[in-house]
Write a protein that binds this DNA or RNA. Structure first.
Lengths: 178, 178
DNA sequence: ACTAACATGTAATCTGTTACATGATTGA
DNA sequence: TCAATCATGTAACAGATTACATGTTAGT
């Protein structure tokens, strides 16, 4: 998730680590500070894979800024990760939001639409709040106001997202598949 | 998150590992299989901490079932984790849903209400979609349909959850604090 | 002078995944 | 007999956190 965010932000413009940290922290709506120990090792990994390069700004300040840019291989990797997104492997809303934040960079509307369709199909799967395996939930669980809250919130989210997906798919790909 | 789910389910009734695995997988709406390598080590950790005990059913099948139960210390730990929940440390919707799924077991309505109020205060923090730090987002970001989607979905979720929180708090704690 | 924000990193630890490993039971 | 499901575990690895570690710059 952090790697995708780094690739995505650097796909927009070169940045140094600290600025990246600020942007990643603000990515998911509420401010979720990202730890140094998450960011810098992730940058190292991506650099080692050849996906980003750093240019150290030496004289400007004694504390050197490392300006990071996406390489061509990095841009390919970003597009590959965006293209493959949308399915089950996306475990949480934050991860999906990270994909959406950078999906614009996937240029091709047909590929963007494919990602949204995959997400739509995932959301269409019946949610299992009412059944655990084959067993219907016990009555007490319907009486539990907190479990009712889960249902209420999940349904509202799902409905809003579905509406948006349908509208956006129509706009992206008016006579596209399915 | 898995530990909380294990404590929560065992707080309802004794279960063996495999059944626990099914229930945890179905906990968050869409089926998210939980890996064996997640579940069994987590059970070991909780057992080692003295929070759950196992009774091996020997003869019934050659493959032995280990029926797990919550100890008294385990119940204390569950209640402690529920009591402390609701704040910033809850990083995603799935984690919060796990808390809600078992919040009933926190018996005391005042303590339940405190958890919901903490969540409400967290959601009230202005979301930073429009501002990154002090800098307002560039116009292009409003024109990006995918970033607009993030906003749309996040707002719908937040509104639904807020409505539910207010209603539930009123019911729980009619003349409670704040 | 002091504090907050800027700026970059490492080490230990935690929690999770995938892949490996084994074996019994049940139904087609 | 073959596959799916039941049932339990370990090993290697991935990704994240917290705490540690250092130093600069800008504002009060």
């Amino acid at each position: 998730m952090v790697e995708l965010a780094i690739l995505g932000f650097l796909g927009e413009r070169p940045l140094h680590g600290y600025e990246l940290k600020r942007r990643v922290a603000h990515l998911t709506g509420h401010v979720r500070p990202i730890a140094d120990g998450t960011l810098y090792p992730a940058i190292k990994r991506l650099e080692k894979a050849g996906w980003l390069s750093r240019r150290t700004e030496p004289g400007s300040r004694a504390a050197p800024r490392h300006v990071l840019s996406l390489t061509e291989a990095g841009r390919d990797e970003l597009r590959r990760r965006l293209r493959d997104a949308g399915g089950v492997q996306i475990s949480d809303e934050n991860h999906w939001f990270t994909v959406l934040a950078f999906l614009r960079q996937l240029d091709d509307p047909a590929q963007q639409a494919a990602v949204l369709r995959r997400r739509r199909d995932f959301l269409r799967e019946p949610s299992s709040f009412f059944y655990e395996g084959e067993r219907p939930l016990a009555a007490e669980e319907f009486e539990d106001p907190f479990r009712q809250g889960i249902l209420t919130i999940a349904r509202a989210t799902s409905r809003a997202e579905m509406r948006w997906l349908h509208a956006t798919l129509k706009a992206l790909d008016p006579q596209g598949p399915r």
